[in-house]
Nucleic acid binder design. Structure first.
Lengths: 113, 113
DNA sequence: CGACTATAAGTAGCGACGCTACAGGTAGCG
DNA sequence: CGCTACCTGTAGCGTCGCTACTTATAGTCG
């Protein structure tokens, strides 16, 4: 899938992945690949800047951790992040319903009589 | 609705509106507003450039028409445009299913055991 | 040992896209 | 005459995801 189509919804997806518990960037990319059945496979140049963006926005909170000589930046939802996720979910519902409706039927011609 | 969220799907929507028959820019904006129950209300600075883009891409074909002293640029789908619309519909199905799946459940934590 | 893969994080620069804020013009109504 | 609806358009901006690259450690295979 053209991951480019995620435009504007990536943030919500990342927040959703972090909802059940903290995680680091690499694990998030893995989780997305697995959960989408390989459909969503984001490059690092997409995920890391997005996480930094979320951090700047105060939606996630980050901290360094060490595991087997590998440093990890672990991200966790903030209260604001949870609220933003809720908002994103309802926004997505409305949005996808609207697009589906517009994309599918095609009842009559556009030109007025 | 944040029309910005349409990123990447606007073209498909415009093609869908033009599917049943030709139409001009202003009527297209009207049609979108009406069909979406006011949810989708695009500014002219979004619609006209998008139509020009579709024209450059060969997905629509444009011609001037005159009606009551008002010039109108009427757009019509090309065969390539119809094919692109089909593609967009299946792409949208996959995409929206994937996003819904990722956004909603949240089965387990990200971090591996 | 050396090469390679997996794990892990990051940045610079680019291109695409939608938006804001304009500009310009006609028709009709009070 | 002023206002609203109709109709098209552009310049410049900001955001966002992508490509391509860099840096570093751990494990595996020949």
């Amino acid at each position: 899938m053209r991951a480019e189509a995620l435009k504007g919804h990536l943030d919500g997806i990342l927040l959703a992945v972090l909802e059940p518990g903290p995680g680091h960037g690499y694990a998030i990319m893995e989780a997305l690949r697995v959960r989408s059945g390989g459909q969503v496979d984001l490059p690092t140049g997409t995920v890391y800047p997005a996480l930094h963006r979320l951090e700047r926005a105060g939606l996630v909170q980050a901290s360094w951790s060490e595991a087997g000589g590998r440093r990890r930046r672990v991200y966790e939802l903030t209260p604001a992040g949870r609220r933003a996720l809720d908002t994103e979910r309802t926004t997505w519902q409305d949005f996808s319903a609207a697009v589906s409706a517009l994309l599918h039927p095609a009842p009559a011609a556009v030109t007025s009589p």
